[in-house]
Design a protein around this nucleic acid. Structure first.
Lengths: 212, 212, 212, 212
DNA sequence: TATGAATGAGTGTTCATTCAT
DNA sequence: GATGAATGAACACTCATTCAT
């Protein structure tokens, strides 16, 4: 990511309570502050635990780290996928938004594609086990993959199309497949000093240039 | 694999009990035969279950399928990795042996490398969940990766070196990294019709050709 | 019940806050009105939920339906039994009052008894799970049974005594036992098309007629 | 019950392993003895706990009482209904078998019916909470009711038919309804000194005699 | 040696109840 | 007073692993 987001910002609930302005003394605000503080703690804790023990870490572990009861987690994030999504929401969003920006730079579409994918790899690689869980077929985890895909696929498609149009890369590779492939290459990239996901992704993208 | 290995041959224990000849009628001999038969059944059952439910299938399921008790499995294969290794031993061996053969064909080293990797991909992709478990950091599963690597890395290195020497591919990519990458690309390739691991691996290998 | 009581009237708190008149504009008065309105909503919601999910429905469900917080429920009705009693108070009262009325009709006491019990059965059978909870020995639920009994037992006793006196039924059956029995026969009467509580209760009451 | 069955006999598994004769030294026998001993302990413990805490008592409580792990319970009785059925199997069987016997006595069918129902009441009343759970609509508990019904309904039907044929009782009451009713009357009969289920059931059956 | 019964830690999930706001 | 967020005990259920027979 362009901006190094280490911790999670407040208000990152899955349910985007997009009530932008106005911080009047509305009576409902009171609890909201409390809850929001808690949700923040939860997301931070989850992020930390995800790094330490992977995104499939026991609910209890996350709760303990956040200093809350397990019920609190279920209140805020009914599903594990909800929690994961909330934790990574900003990064995914940032990544999605970076696509058009890169395309508008004036650089060649292929270069934009390359840089965008680097961004994606940076994001995924640093999240222990995220890449793996994106592939997990555990029930409910599909929601997670769906979210990522929904958000990023259109962006990737645009980049890909542009690069095809500019004649820089071959035709015939779907964004879905590419992103899955890149995601897969990121698995296990942390804690393995002999494995550099970025380099391999570089090869993969380089492979796109090959003429038929 | 060149040869379609459907079932597992006898005597495929991890601990190569290489006591080939001699089948006297001593009672110990008899037991030996019994045990070997059992191990055979076990490996066949495990192979079948691995295909059906993945390599992380419950021990009981395998035991049931083999018609033995769970204890028997633990006796023969103390660790799950041991079992997996035993099940796939032949394929890994066949794959390892195919490397030099391909190199000796007279084809260009790059073509040989390509074909060899195709072989590997064919093997891995058809084993439900194998690719994933090769990356799993569950305790003990590292043994599994180690085995695969021990066996295949030298072969891959030779192919890679030859292709570098022949000037067909760029330098600087380790066999370890390449194999891990290819393995990763195979994850989730079954049961996802929109994802073709072979094509992506093709791109990856094509990427190697790029000049620096 | 004779009168179809669908909703609950205001002021039906367990603790009969019998402060009838006077609605000065003092702030405490205002609150009172507020609270009463709230209690009313609560009782209606509870009645609805009891029908839909039984009298053991989660507190949250009732609170949600009433549009109040769970805490509010606990404030008004410290115990679940209190809530149930409040919800059914009117019906129980109506039933209690119907006894003397029936007895005064001029019909034979036995007929009056029969009709009264029919009334009771109608009431209980239509309250999903009420009969069952009347028998539940969950802590605190005894209060509930006690309330029903306190209210209805004297009435039943009178009817019974009259019928004994008139020589229509045998002696020796207590009102307590009879009411418990009738209540029991009502359990599970809804959602079981093959089970008609009224018919069985009819048999039971008919049995009373038998000479010793 | 005729025979006062206090504890549970061995081999009362749900899955009637009806391999009657032959207690040779078959190799499979060995464990069986162990397991059977355990199952016996389990059933006794369950019976005790059912009395103490009802048939919905926590699995752990039963396991603890039996001195086994919870897994053991699940091994023997996958479902709670299985366990309950196993616990009460003998009594249900004995009750079922008593029906024809009573009918063959030479007594009038009505008397036979009365005695049979007394038997049933004796059985149910002494099992704390059994009657209640027979009415529970908790998922899976229907199996339990089904078992009781399957076993006892035919018997009851025969008795009922006979009494109708002999002209002793009125027509038009199904065995299903009658048994449900009797079962219901047994709810809460223990621990309530003022409630005598037998007497009420007597009234119910007496009610059958009434001419239309 | 083989068996498979027993174990029990581990996990997700629900819900009554309390209490800070 | 009202709110509803937080709590955490309670429970069912799974499965890897051990060990008596």
């Amino acid at each position: 990511m362009t901006e190094g987001i280490g911790s999670v910002r407040e208000g990152d609930s899955v349910r985007g309570t997009g009530q932008g302005a106005g911080q009047g003394a509305g009576q409902t605000r009171a609890k909201r502050a409390d809850a929001r503080r808690n949700e923040k703690a939860l997301l931070d804790a989850a992020a930390a635990v995800f790094v330490a023990s992977g995104v499939e870490a026991p609910v209890r572990e996350i709760a303990a780290r956040a200093g809350v009861g397990t019920g609190t987690i279920y209140r805020h994030f009914p599903t594990r996928a909800d929690l994961i999504i909330a934790v990574f929401r900003h990064q995914v969003d940032a990544c999605a938004e970076a696509g058009p920006r890169l395309l508008a730079t004036g650089e060649s579409p292929y270069v934009a594609l390359t840089k965008w994918i680097d961004l994606f790899v940076d994001f995924v690689v640093t999240k222990h086990g995220l890449a793996a869980v994106l592939r997990s077929d555990s029930a409910g985890m599909d929601t997670l993959g769906a979210y990522f895909l929904d958000r990023l696929l259109p962006v990737c498609t645009d980049l890909l199309d542009a690069a095809v149009t500019s004649g820089e890369i071959r035709d015939g590779v779907e964004a879905y497949e590419l992103m899955r492939g890149v995601g897969n290459l990121c698995i296990g990239a942390d804690n393995d000093p002999r494995y550099d996901a970025r380099r391999l992704v570089g090869l993969l993208v380089a492979g796109l240039r090959q003429p038929r």
